[in-house]
Simulated scan of single mutants.
Amino acid sequence: MSGWTTIWVLIAAVAAGSGTWFATPKGPNQVLIRSSTLLTLTCCYVMWAIVYLAQLHPMIKPTRSDVRFLDE
């Protein structure tokens, strides 16, 4: 598990966005379809990356509350 996974998923998201950009059919709703798809891909990637990186490098070290210390 490393931070490189986020780079690979970013490359996949950019490839999907590029494919959508060129595969969108011509018509009056072309801009709407492109914008919606790219915005959806961007939001999904950013949410996934934040959750993945937060689990990969937590800011607070987890502690178990059911463990007894020997000091007591």
Rank of each mutant, 00 (worst) to 15 (best):
Asp71Asn: 13
Ser36Trp: 00
Ile60Phe: 11
Leu38Trp: 03
Ala54Thr: 04
Asp66Thr: 01
Val14Ala: 15
Arg64Pro: 02
Thr5Phe: 15
Thr20Tyr: 08
Ala12Glu: 01
Phe22Leu: 02
Arg68Ile: 15
Lys61Tyr: 08
Leu10His: 02
Leu41Gln: 02
Val31Asp: 04
Pro28Met: 07
Phe22Glu: 00
Leu70His: 09
Cys43Tyr: 10
Cys43His: 08
Gly19Asp: 02
Gln55Tyr: 08
Arg64Asp: 13
Thr63Pro: 03
Thr63Trp: 03
Ala15Lys: 01
Leu70Ile: 09
Gln30Trp: 00
Met59Ile: 13
Leu56Lys: 06
Ser35Arg: 10
Trp21Val: 06
Cys44Val: 14
His57Pro: 05
Glu72Cys: 13
Leu56Met: 12
Glu72Ala: 11
Leu38Pro: 05
Ala15Gln: 05
Ala16Asp: 01
Trp8Ala: 04
Ile50Phe: 06
Pro58His: 00
Gln30Arg: 01
Gly27Pro: 00
Met47Phe: 09
Gln30Lys: 00
Ala16Thr: 04
Thr40Cys: 06
Pro28Gly: 07
Ala13Asp: 09
Ala54Phe: 07
Ser18Asn: 11
Ala15Thr: 04
His57Ile: 12
Gly17Thr: 04
Leu56His: 09
Trp8Tyr: 11
Thr40Tyr: 11
Tyr45Phe: 15
Arg64Ser: 07
Ala12Phe: 09
Pro62Met: 00
Lys26His: 12
Ile11Lys: 08
Val9Ile: 13
Ala15Met: 04
Glu72Pro: 11
Val31Arg: 08
Gly19Ser: 04
Met47Ser: 12
Ile33Phe: 00
Asp71Tyr: 08
Cys44Trp: 02
Phe69Trp: 09
Ser35Gly: 08
Gly17Phe: 02
His57Val: 12
Ser18Lys: 05
Thr40Lys: 01
Val67Arg: 13
Tyr45Cys: 06
